[in-house]
């Protein structure tokens, strides 16, 4: 609301201006508050939030094999690593890594590698046991990941993300 349209010729200019500012400010606050529900409705709804954990039974996965589970609509790679893979992952010098991270920080038990199967470049799903480092390879734009899921070559900036998970039993994890 423009207060310049009305001249203050009648003397009560200060009080009048105060009124305009007060009404305008009140209206602006109200309008801003009214916008929030229309934005917040796009955030995850209560039923989506309630489903934000997934349980996985590891006992069925033999060594050297992996499965792809679903957590929050995204693929999660669960790999039972062989001794060779663990060894390779642990042997890499941190200086060789674009996103330096020791293997020990990416796993809770060395034989179980659990990570979100979404390329950190632009969100494609990498292919397992391919690429130049024996880990994963993203076919979209050619990112190579190693046996710890760390980016080694290609456009992706970061290692594959490790989701929050806990071992609720010896062979059972809950993601989320």
């Amino acid at each position: 609301m423009s207060s310049t349209q009305v001249s203050g010729a009648h003397g009560g200019a200060t009080r009048r201006d105060f009124l305009y500012v007060a009404a305008g400010a009140f209206g602006a606050v109200g309008a801003a508050a009214a916008v929030w529900p229309f934005i917040h409705q796009m955030n995850p709804s209560a039923d989506v939030l309630a489903l934000s954990s997934t349980e996985i039974d590891l006992s069925q996965i033999p060594e050297g094999m992996g499965i792809t589970a679903v957590w929050r609509g995204k693929p999660v790679f669960v790999r039972h690593r062989s001794a060779k893979e663990i060894e390779e992952a642990q042997a890499v010098a941190l200086a060789d890594l674009p996103d330096p991270e020791p293997d020990a920080k990416r796993v809770q038990k060395p034989q179980w590698l659990i990570m979100v199967g979404v390329c950190t470049h632009l969100g494609c799903v990498p292919l397992g046991q391919q690429g130049d480092f024996g880990g994963w390879f993203c076919p979209c734009h050619g990112s190579h990941y190693d046996t710890s899921g760390r980016i080694r070559r290609g456009p992706a900036p970061k290692n594959l993300e490790v989701p929050p998970y806990t071992f609720i039993e010896e062979n059972r994890i809950r993601i989320g």
Binding site: M1, L19, Y20, A22, A23, F26, G27, G30
Partner: peptide, 8 residues
Amino acid sequence: LTGLFYAV
């Protein structure tokens, strides 16, 4: 708010 608008 309506009161303010009325005053204005």
